[in-house]
Amino acid sequence: MVTALVVILVLILLLPFVVKQVEHNLEYFLFTMGIISVIVSKQFSAELFFHIFKNPLIYYITLAVLIAGLIFTLLKEKLKIGVEKVAEKISLRLFAFIIIVVLGLMSSIITAIIASLVLVEVVNYLPLTRKNKINLIVIACFSIGLGAVLTPVGEPLATIVVSKLHADFFYLARLIGIDIIIAILALGLIGTFFAKRESGIGEPTEDVEADENTKEVFIRAFKVFVFIFALELLGTGFKPIIDLYIVKMKSELLYWVNTISAIVDNATLAAAEISPSMTPEQIRAILMGMLISGGMLIPGNIPNIISAGKLKIKSTEWARTAVPLGAILLIVYYIVLFVI
């Protein structure tokens, strides 16, 4: 069983980068691999599907994407004009810094979902090349993914951790708030290097139709639903490996092993790993490893999924920026957490 699950994990990591059909249909590929993983791990059951369907989060995220998509479609011209005016009045580098930092910090209040929906609509109309738009989106998604954990409102990972530890609302803000804020500010500075003004201000990125119709908004929302369902299946499918091996590791090793959260729902990992018996230092290390890794591949975080879906960012395009950036952040925070 373990060998088969490892093979599935390798396929999930590799196939989107080498098979174009998989890359273009990532949601359905992950759903298929999720089904296979729960069959292999003997977790497949009607109860599992009922449990996933009863999860209100999957509907909340899908509805948020759908409603926001419809609203942004109706207000497209006003949004375009608004972005133009702001981009004309302030430096584009400053604008990029503000987007990354403000959405990162606000995501713990407005949720990571809403923050990412705002992000893609704003960046879509910035006078940037497609490459720099992708770079900016990736960096901002790291920021949102990190910032959202500061309160239980921001994302499911934070909700689960606070619940399991029987902690108060601001526990995570006290525990890793400084780490998160420093990372968000650093990401904001990094983002300024990709905010190079290009001609054609206000033009949507080339792979996104300027007039996204209602049908496309519904299709995108459905794909998000499938994506989240797939992550739930994968989290359940890989749970035997998590229970048998991962939860027994030392914090230093766990920090690196948790890079699996790049493809496995980090809330599932947190539910399995976090315990009230752990020290604050252990919890801090586990969370930082998960949060940073979550930005490295598209399936790692809801903001990644929403952003990549809207701007039609391919897995290879995402990884080209996100993997090196994530690796650098992981190394820096490993030194901060375990060496200094």
Rank of each mutant, 00 (worst) to 15 (best):
L11G: 05
L15I: 05
V19H: 05
Q21W: 13
V22S: 05
H24S: 12
L26F: 12
E27V: 02
E27Q: 13
E27T: 08
F29H: 13
V38P: 03
I39E: 11
Q43K: 12
S45R: 11
L48C: 07
H51Y: 11
F53G: 07
K54G: 10
K54L: 13
Y59C: 04
Y60G: 15
I61P: 03
G69T: 04
F72I: 09
K76P: 07
V83W: 03
K89E: 10
I90L: 13
F95K: 01
A96K: 09
I98A: 13
I100D: 08
M106Q: 07
I114M: 12
S116T: 11
S116N: 01
V118G: 00
V122K: 08
P127Y: 00
P127V: 01
L136S: 11
V138I: 06
I139Q: 11
A140V: 10
P152T: 06
P156R: 00
A158Q: 00
I160H: 08
V162H: 07
S163R: 15
K164N: 11
L165C: 02
H166G: 12
F170H: 11
Y171H: 12
Y171E: 03
L172Y: 00
A173P: 07
A173K: 05
D179Q: 07
I180N: 05
I181D: 02
I181W: 01
A186G: 10
E198M: 08
G200F: 00
T205F: 09
D207K: 15
D207M: 04
V208E: 10
D211E: 14
A221V: 02
A221E: 07
V224F: 03
F225Q: 02
V226F: 09
E232W: 08
L233D: 05
T236I: 06
G237Y: 02
K239L: 07
D243A: 03
D243L: 09
Y245W: 14
M249Y: 05
M249D: 01
M249N: 02
N258V: 15
N266H: 12
A270Y: 02
I274W: 05
Q282R: 11
A285Q: 02
I292P: 03
M296G: 06
I298K: 03
I302L: 12
P303R: 00
N304W: 03
G309K: 09
I313E: 05
K314G: 02
V323T: 09
L330I: 08
I331P: 09
V336L: 13
V339T: 04
